[in-house]
């Protein structure tokens, strides 16, 4: 029996050596370690042997069984490793094939610009609020120091509705700027005030590459004790530097708006020629970005603020102009044209 066991051991190890795949390995397992295997039959026949034979051969048979089990495990590992190596070699992907597209939409470039501007001013403590686009003459003009028949009304070609409210003798109009919200907010709150107001505005203007009858503006207003022109300049220069980069120079010049005094126009160094002079900046080297100034005492009085105690600044800018300058967009009509070939670029 001992010889039988030893030869079984030799046979098993020899045939295991030749095995290279899982299927043959499985057959080998059944043949040498399965229930019907000769080894198993030997183990089962042990009980018929005399005790000393039984002990000796039993020990040897179990030793061989454990050896074969270990060898099986070892071989399984080897074959798995081989198979993996094979598959790693064979399944090389064409990584240049296009991936599965992920659908992601985009915000309109104007929404993106409005958010960017609101974030910049938000970080300087300005709260974003909104107001009506269909306005009363009082808020759009009268309270802003632009009475009926004031020549400054020429600066704001107005579209009128056939709609009236309450005892207001004037028809409602489409606001020509976001400035009426200066009055509405000051009527509602007390200083200190720091707000910005984005929104649509309207002008009675024929549309061309640089004009639209509807466009967007952002208004800013800060009122408190001791607010100065120096702080308007600080706030707006900081804004320009964050929006256009800190290397781009900005300047203040005197300008006129009836609801501020002193009045200001801010320009930045021309984006195309960097100040050298080109057709975009009409050879001035500067591009106008916004208008503003110190809130006119008449406006403060109108909302019941004492102009001797409170001062403030206000400013307003067109939004379309910003991406037009930043990206060199030559036609304002593209924004409301909603051509996907345009919108997908932002």
């Amino acid at each position: 029996m001992e010889t039988q066991l030893q030869s079984l051991r030799e046979d098993a190890l020899a045939s295991l050596e030749a095995i290279t795949n899982m299927e043959s390995l499985n057959e080998w397992r059944v043949q040498y370690l399965g229930r019907k295997s000769s080894l198993n039959q030997i183990l089962r026949s042990l009980k018929e042997l005399p005790p000393d034979e039984r002990q000796k051969n039993g020990a040897l048979a179990n030793q061989i069984k454990n050896l074969l089990k270990n060898k099986l495990q070892e071989k399984t590992g080897q074959i798995e490793e081989l198979t993996l190596k094979d598959s790693l070699k064979q399944q090389t992907l064409d990584v240049t094939l296009p991936g599965k597209p992920i659908d992601i939409g985009r915000l309109h470039p104007l929404t993106q610009t409005i958010r960017e501007i609101c974030n910049i001013f938000g970080s300087m403590g300005f709260e974003t609020i909104e107001g009506p686009e269909i306005e009363q003459d009082y808020y759009n003009f009268e309270a802003l120091n632009i009475p009926e028949d004031h020549p400054a009304r020429d600066m704001f070609a107005t579209m009128w509705t056939d709609y009236r409210v309450g005892d207001d003798p004037n028809n409602l109009l489409l606001r020509t700027h976001t400035s009426p919200m200066q009055i509405r907010i000051m009527e509602k709150r007390r200083p200190p005030i720091r707000v910005i107001v984005p929104g649509r505005v309207y002008r009675y203007e024929a549309s061309d590459a640089t004009h639209e009858s509807m466009f967007h503006q952002i208004e800013g207003l800060a009122v408190s004790e001791n607010i100065t022109l120096a702080e308007l300049k600080g706030t707006l220069f900081e804004f320009a530097s964050r929006l256009f980069g800190s290397n781009r120079k900005a300047r203040f010049r005197c300008d006129y708006f009836p609801f501020v005094e002193p009045g200001v126009e801010m320009a930045i160094e021309c984006i195309v020629c960097n100040g050298a002079g080109c057709s975009l900046c009409h050879n001035t080297g500067w591009i106008e970005i916004l208008g503003g100034g110190m809130v006119h005492p008449n406006v403060l009085k109108r909302v019941g603020y004492d102009p001797a105690v409170y001062s403030g600044f206000a400013f307003g800018m067109g939004i379309e102009r910003i991406p037009m300058l930043k990206y060199g967009i030559e036609d304002i009509r593209l924004f409301c044209g909603n051509d996907m070939r345009f919108l997908r670029q932002f």
């Binding site: 200190p192 720091r194 408190s224 607010i227 022109l229 600080g234 706030t235 200001v264």
Partner: peptide, 21 residues
């Protein structure tokens, strides 16, 4: 201001109390 020149105004950040939001 306009004759002295707006470029003589030294920019300054807002210093007044921050309104609650």
């Amino acid at each position: 201001a306009r004759i002295v020149g707006y470029d003589k105004i030294i920019p300054k950040m807002l210093g007044s109390a921050l309104p609650s939001q």
